[in-house]
Nucleic acid binder design. Sequence first.
DNA 1: TCGCCGACGTAACATTGTTACACCGGTCGG
DNA 2: CCGACCGGTGTAACAATGTTACGTCGGCGA
Lengths: 216, 216
Amino acid sequence: MKKPQPPLRDTRTAILSAAIDILHVHGAGALTVRSVATAAGCSTTGVYTWFGGKNGLVEAIFIDGFQRFGAALDATRATAPGDHQVVGLAHAYRTWALANPTHYMVMFARTVPDFCPSLDALVTAHGTFQQLVEATAAHMRRVGDDGDPTEVAHHLWAAMHGYVSLEIAEMDMAVDESHRTRRFEAGLRMLTEGVLRASSASAAVTAVDVAGTVDR
Amino acid sequence: MKKPQPPLRDTRTAILSAAIDILHVHGAGALTVRSVATAAGCSTTGVYTWFGGKNGLVEAIFIDGFQRFGAALDATRATAPGDHQVVGLAHAYRTWALANPTHYMVMFARTVPDFCPSLDALVTAHGTFQQLVEATAAHMRRVGDDGDPTEVAHHLWAAMHGYVSLEIAEMDMAVDESHRTRRFEAGLRMLTEGVLRASSASAAVTAVDVAGTVDR
DNA sequence: TCGCCGACGTAACATTGTTACACCGGTCGG
DNA sequence: CCGACCGGTGTAACAATGTTACGTCGGCGA
């Protein structure tokens, strides 16, 4: 027996990886059914048999992106020291996004017109977000904050997404790469000191006030 | 004389307004040269004579968007009390973005594939950003902060963009509209208390530390 | 063995961005 | 006054893209 698992879904994975490769190398504009099919070594029909069309293919790219993204964040959480897990997660977030800008844009900015992620895809995306919630919750427990970790994590997420997406869209008027990095780190520091209640009493007052507002 | 100004550029404005209308009503996916031309009452050639092609049209939409966006922010700055100009600006930012989501996405998220704004367009965008810088600088002068207003304004911009773009992409797991509004306001409060140095001494220490990091 | 069903390719169709070409009206030089 | 030019316009075509119809092939069960 030369085939322990029937290589039935082989073309499916070939198509998906070819599509992701084209997306990474040539951008979302070059992501056509024909180019993907020829890169995968099959005809355009294959895209329709395995994904139902271009929308289905983009959705698979969307889900695959969140899985890879989540794996990268997971790896960081596993290695980072507990005290700075949130900071490490933020750096991993930016690093992955800048390493996969076109993929990130498909996931967060709806780069492909007329694509709307299904409920399944949104569940996957939500699962990735939960990692940030867990790391935030752990940090808040350690510090003694009793606010809502989900809300705090969302503030962190929104800020990270803001810096990163402006950076990818080249809409930040930064002078060079190191400027962008310093800017992100400065913002991150303000966040961890402001959003995640710092140890000082005055900061705690602010955080409690904010938490009260959010929870109402 | 029935024509004080020769209505020569009439078709140009007709095409542009038709394109913006289609973008607002049907989204970026429906923004085709033919649909725009028929809506403007001319042939597809008109788009090429006045804009050089679809990319030129999208660039005009990009520039027009920043002009309208800037006008909305300007109006807010003119009416808002000086003490809360930054807060008012932030609310105007979110309000305009949520009222014109497809336009906002064309401007900030590169929704149209293979579109890259020219230097001219980026200059217009930069001009709009300057309003935020000026309001931030005025606020910082009033409070006595001597940091770099451009950097502080960028932190504000990134955060606002983060909340708004996640909201537009429906990637925030919010329960309803009022939840999103409270969330944005909570984040805005943290920002104005953290990024824009608050009056209290402890907060000032944090801000100085941050400013020192940024300026290096 | 016969028939079915899933995977696959070829070829066509509608749509879209783009270009070539002809027309038409005004302007300017002779 | 007239002919050439030139900018704005429309028609029609072309290439690329998403999609679908149809035929083929191979394995599997009745």
